[in-house]
Nucleic acid binder design. Structure first.
Length: 471
DNA sequence: ATTATCAATT
């Protein structure tokens, strides 16, 4: 009985690209078991399953469909297997195909596969645009693989690609964002040796570096040097400094810098206003912040959701849910659609307050409004349910999360399994375990220890565990 | 044809 249920779950395709709301609804409503809907979607969905897995002669003559296909595929493993299928028939991939696949793999942080592809580029003498390297350096940086980023930057020449200030800036930014300012400074000292001329963006990154080190004086010196070298400061240059002063509580200083910018003929953007608004609300001046938002429109600056986001953050931080609701109403009146971030703020608030029903309602509402939840959204709701001990409800959301291609954190899964076992929902616990195994999301030793310890009181689960461990 | 600034999380 248990096995058949698990079998059914494990044979369902893990990554179907189907309408989010539809899948969410079928998976969430208790009238239907959470994994019974896959099959019914199979024939209708325009999913990756309909793609030919074996190359046909027809496809070989037309290289465009491969790229189009590749762009549609979400699962990087699938994308790489399609790539190989073509290659095996003697098809020679070109630069756009490589670029597309490299971006896809880097985004899913499969850097091993990225390196394999880079190797192909070298062996087949395919010239690559600098853009690809810039993208890769950034992805390495986000994954905190700073040394990988440095290595790639130094190896660019071996790919027959000349380095420009673009890739230089990309690496410089990675170094600064990862607290490697010594390396950043070393790079700056060597820039002329590399034939790199610093541009405005380079200076913006350097200013950010000093501000992150809390050194206002040095940041100002760089700003002065910028003007000396006749490199025009941009809105971003000013925004960096405005943001710094606001975070220090010096909104007056920020305001005068803002005026300075206007005097120099630089038009403030929505971010400039958002920063000032944030500064004001952190000083408890919500009304002034809101007034500034209207001033901004009067000055002809286009309002962005960030500006509402700043106000919403402040209201929810103070727990003023009534005012938060009227802000939502106001947005609706003005036909400004809340985005994922706004919904996430609300969900975060309700989860922190242990009001899971409300959080869940937002999760449903946002999808009805046509806004797709992201990994953060799902994580917060699932964690919220775990916190309140509503593991069955959490499981339904977890399932919806997995179907839409997002992953929970290991701690969440661990908490979920323990909670389900505690409620003697062995089948459900097995289901979660199985799903994680399928996605190669393995537990660390500590989590296993906790689960095994708990499972010892549960003989059926022990069998499954042994099965999993031997595997 | 875009690298830098931006409200939610980790």
């Amino acid at each position: 009985m248990i096995n058949s249920r698990i079998k059914q779950a494990s044979t369902t395709p893990s990554k179907l690209k189907i309408n989010n709301l539809a899948q969410f609804r079928t998976s969430i409503f208790p009238s239907q078991p959470y994994h019974s809907h896959h099959r019914s979607h199979k024939p209708t969905s325009k999913s990756s399953l309909e793609r030919p897995h074996k190359p046909t002669k027809n496809l070989l003559r037309k290289p465009i469909p491969l790229l189009a296909n590749l762009k549609q595929i979400q699962d990087p493993d699938e994308a790489i297997s399609l790539f190989h299928d073509y290659q095996q028939t003697g098809f020679k991939h070109d630069y756009p195909t490589y670029a597309c696949l490299i971006y896809k793999l880097a985004k899913s942080r499969d850097f091993e596969a990225v390196e394999t592809l880079l190797g192909y580029l070298k062996t087949y003498y395919i010239r690559c645009q600098e853009k690809v390297f810039v993208g890769l350096i950034q992805h390495y940086g986000k994954a905190q693989l700073v040394d990988k980023a440095i290595e790639l930057f130094h190896n660019m020449a071996s790919f027959n690609c000349t380095r420009s200030v673009q890739s230089f800036n990309a690496l410089l930014n990675v170094l600064v964002d990862n607290g490697r300012s010594d390396d950043a400074n070393k790079m700056l000292r060597n820039c002329s040796k590399m034939g790199i001329w610093l541009n405005g963006v380079s200076f913006n990154i350097i200013i950010k570096m000093w501000l992150e080190k809390d050194d206002w004086e040095l940041a100002r010196q760089v700003f002065d040097e910028m003007i000396e070298r006749e490199i025009e400061p941009t809105v971003v240059t000013y925004n960096c400094q405005i943001g710094f002063l606001c975070k220090k509580g010096d909104v007056e200083g920020a305001k005068s810098l803002f005026q300075d910018m206007v005097r120099k003929g630089k038009k403030p953007n929505a971010v400039s206003y958002a920063l000032l608004m944030e500064g004001l609300s952190s000083l408890g001046k919500y009304k002034e912040a809101k007034k500034l938002m209207f001033d901004m429109e009067y000055q002809g600056c286009k309002l962005k959701i960030v500006n509402y986001g700043v106000l919403m953050t402040d209201l929810l931080k103070r727990g003023d849910i009534g005012e938060a609701n009227s802000l939502l109403v106001e947005m609706k009146k003005r036909h400004i659609k809340p985005d994922v971030v706004i919904y996430n703020m609300l969900i975060n608030y309700f989860c922190k307050e242990c009001k899971t029903a409300e959080a869940y309602r937002i999760l449903v509402d946002m999808q009805i409004a046509g806004c797709n939840p992201n990994a953060t959204t799902y994580r917060m709701v699932v964690d919220g349910f775990c916190k309140t001990g509503e593991f069955e409800e959490g499981l339904k959301v977890l399932n919806a999360m997995l179907i839409s291609g997002h992953f929970p954190r290991v701690e969440t899964v661990r908490c979920m399994i323990l909670g389900l076992l505690d409620k003697e929902k062995v089948e459900d616990a097995c289901f979660v375990l199985e799903e994680m195994e399928k996605r190669k999301k393995r537990f660390d030793f500590e989590s296993w220890e906790a689960i095994v310890k708990d499972a010892c009181s549960n003989s059926i689960f022990v069998y499954r565990l042994v099965d999993e461990l031997v595997f």
